[in-house]
Simulated assay, not measured.
Amino acid sequence: MPRSLRIEKENGVYHIINRGNYRQDLFINEGAHAAFEKCLFEACEKCEWVLEGFCVMTNHFHLVVRTPKGNLIYGMKWLQSTFANRYHHYRKVHGKLFQGRYKSLIVAEGSHLGALLHYVHLNPVRASMVSVDQLKDYRWSSFWYLFNKRKRPDFLDCSGGLEAAGGLADTPKGRDQYLSYLKWLSEEDAAQKEMAFEKMCRGWALGTKDFKKALLEEVEDDNEPVDQPEKVPRYDGERLREANELRWEMLLEKGLSAIGKDTKSISGDLKSADWKVTLACLLKLKTSATNVWITQQLNMGTPDAVSRYVSEFRTSGGDQKMPFKELTTKVMT
């Protein structure tokens, strides 16, 4: 069955988002904002998180959290359940508070983390709640704490945004320069596009293709022989299609390397070449790769042809012979 892609890493950095159930306004007044911030800060202390940034709006929140102990799932469960219990007790209401578990994207260090912090800090501006000039007065954000240094808790690290805006110092001058930078950024659609603002809440990871591949390699723990397609690891949801295809690509690259083939061989050899059929069979057994994807990657003609070639290969016992098993071991380990 499909499964969620949940990655917990020691010292991992995450963008976490959740909304009120049915997108209802959840943080309806200063008291609700303050109560959530209190729970968030308690979670950071309890789990020893580093809070890189946050912004609490009226019906949703954004958190940028570093987890030195790799305990994101435990910490988020505690944070949301504790806030919900307190909210219900105080308001004498019942029912589901958040729209779901929460969404988390693991984030690459450097420019991707910096762009995310800019995105989070500019949330109230994009929602037309404040202007950029008023941003430092928006109370429920790490940007407010940037300008109120003495009130920062020890676990709140406000240096990321400053560093990403040009290595600015955490001084009155540096903070003013960061505000000017955000004002420029808020007016520059091209710069926002380059930083991929529109993708900050999509998918499962923010980073380069190599970064994502490395993450998938870390979670590839299910290396037992798998013969039934329905038991093959496949990450659920349209938003995780990229993770599935990256996994298929990684295994295909390992397979090509193991048999001494390359992209020239793919285009130059027969569509029904034995080595192509062998790799296609391996991909069908060990991944949820579609016939369409395999056809395109291995230049095998049509999706129906892939099905036919693989079926004939298995009927002849090719997948039970030692060469196939040895190749499978090389690719899957």
Rank of each mutant, 00 (worst) to 15 (best):
R139C: 05
R139W: 01
R139E: 10
W140Y: 15
S141G: 14
S141H: 10
F143V: 10
Y145Q: 13
Y145W: 12
Y145R: 13
L146S: 05
N148W: 08
K149P: 00
R150P: 00
R150Y: 05
R152M: 12
P153C: 11
P153D: 09
D154M: 09
L156N: 08
L156K: 12
D157R: 14
C158L: 08
S159I: 04
S159T: 15
S159H: 11
G161A: 11
G161V: 02
G161T: 05
G166Q: 11
G166C: 09
L168H: 04
T171N: 03
P172A: 02
G174C: 03
G174R: 07
G174E: 01
R175M: 06
R175I: 01
D176F: 00
D176Y: 04
Q177Y: 00
L179R: 07
L182A: 01
K183F: 01
W184M: 09
L185D: 00
S186Q: 03
S186H: 05
E187N: 13
E187C: 09
E188Y: 06
E188A: 15
D189W: 10
D189H: 13
D189V: 15
A190F: 05
A190C: 02
Q192L: 07
K193F: 00
K193H: 07
M195C: 03
A196H: 13
F197C: 10
E198P: 08
M200S: 03
R202T: 01
G203F: 03
L206I: 14
G207I: 05
G207E: 03
K209A: 09
K209N: 07
D210P: 00
F211A: 06
F211G: 03
F211D: 02
K212V: 02
L215A: 06
L215V: 04
E217C: 13
D221W: 11
D222G: 09
N223I: 05
E224I: 13
E224Y: 12
V226L: 14
D227L: 13
D227M: 11
D227S: 14
Q228M: 12
P229E: 07
E230W: 10
V232M: 07
V232Q: 14
V232K: 13
R234P: 01
Y235T: 06
G237A: 09
E238P: 09
L240G: 00
L240D: 15
E242S: 15
A243K: 08
E245D: 15
E245P: 11
L246Y: 13
W248H: 15
E249N: 15
M250V: 11
M250T: 10
M250P: 04
M250D: 08
L251F: 11
L252F: 06
E253P: 07
K254Q: 11
K254A: 11
K254T: 00
K254I: 02
G255H: 12
I259H: 03
G260Q: 10
G260L: 13
G260W: 07
D262I: 08
D262W: 04
T263V: 05
K264S: 12
I266S: 06
I266K: 09
I266P: 05
S267W: 09
S267C: 07
S267I: 06
G268F: 00
D269K: 11
L270S: 15
K271W: 04
K271G: 06
A273H: 06
A273P: 04
L279W: 02
A280H: 02
C281Y: 00
C281V: 04
C281H: 00
L282T: 03
L283T: 03
K284F: 00
